[in-house]
Amino acid sequence: MAGKNIVYFDLETQRSFGDVGGFSNKSKMGVSVGVTYSTARGTYEIYPESEMEKLGEELVKADLVVGWNHMQFDYPVLQPYVFHTMVEQTINLDMMLELEKIVGFRLKLDSVASASLGMGKTADGLDALRWWQEHKKTGQFAPLRKIAEYCAFDVKVTKCVHEYAMEHGLLKYDDKSGRVAEVAVDWK
């Protein structure tokens, strides 16, 4: 992938599945913040809700978008904000979906990251929802910064998991019995 622009991507929502009437209404969840890391740029970019079109443009221009369940979750949440049909106009590696094809069930990013890298998530989506509510109530920037930091850390974890997979040709995860299992992947 040398010379190609890989864009790692994640977003956080304003509302939960419960708030919008279930999984089929992802498009109503709203984006609080989106974060990318571009290998061409070598930096993270944080996109507030007002810049979703710009985020969409970056994803469409990428040589490869890498995420964790971004095809079935993040893209449907982002879709109402952007002109492009995200799934059709992007080249993607959804690591969760690829691993699901191999192991037969959905793995959490945290499980793969902790088993492969010894690093886990710093918070969870419910924290991000709470921070969004705090921001809406108070108008303060600090809760938004917390969401951006959490989301950027998830992008970093996604990037590290992908790099580990490319370097080693495998990923580790905690299997259902609590033991560490390995799965071979060819994502070079």
Rank of each mutant, 00 (worst) to 15 (best):
M1D: 12
M1H: 09
M1A: 07
Y8S: 08
D10G: 05
D10K: 04
Q14F: 05
R15C: 09
V20W: 15
G21W: 05
G21N: 09
G21K: 06
G21C: 13
G21R: 03
N25D: 15
K28G: 05
M29N: 13
G30Q: 14
G34W: 12
V35T: 05
T36K: 03
T39K: 06
T39W: 02
A40N: 10
G42T: 04
T43R: 00
T43P: 04
T43F: 00
Y44W: 06
E45V: 06
E49S: 03
S50L: 08
E51A: 12
E53M: 09
L59C: 02
A62G: 00
D63R: 02
D63V: 05
L64V: 07
L64K: 01
G67M: 13
G67Q: 11
M71C: 12
M71P: 13
F73Q: 13
V77C: 15
Q79D: 10
V82R: 12
F83A: 07
H84L: 07
T85G: 00
T85A: 05
T85E: 15
M86Y: 01
V87Y: 02
E88C: 04
Q89K: 00
T90I: 01
I91Q: 13
N92S: 10
L97E: 01
L97S: 15
A115T: 10
L117H: 01
G120C: 06
K121V: 04
K121E: 03
A123N: 12
G125S: 09
G125H: 14
A128S: 15
L129C: 03
R130T: 11
E134P: 13
K136W: 03
K136R: 13
G139V: 06
Q140P: 09
L144P: 11
K146H: 14
I147Y: 09
A148T: 05
E149T: 03
A152M: 07
F153D: 10
F153Y: 15
F153A: 00
V155T: 03
K156A: 12
K156V: 00
K156W: 04
V157M: 11
C160T: 01
C160A: 08
C160Y: 00
Y164E: 04
H168G: 06
K172Y: 10
Y173L: 02
Y173T: 08
Y173N: 02
D174V: 01
K176T: 04
G178Q: 04
A181H: 02
E182C: 05
K188W: 14
K188V: 00
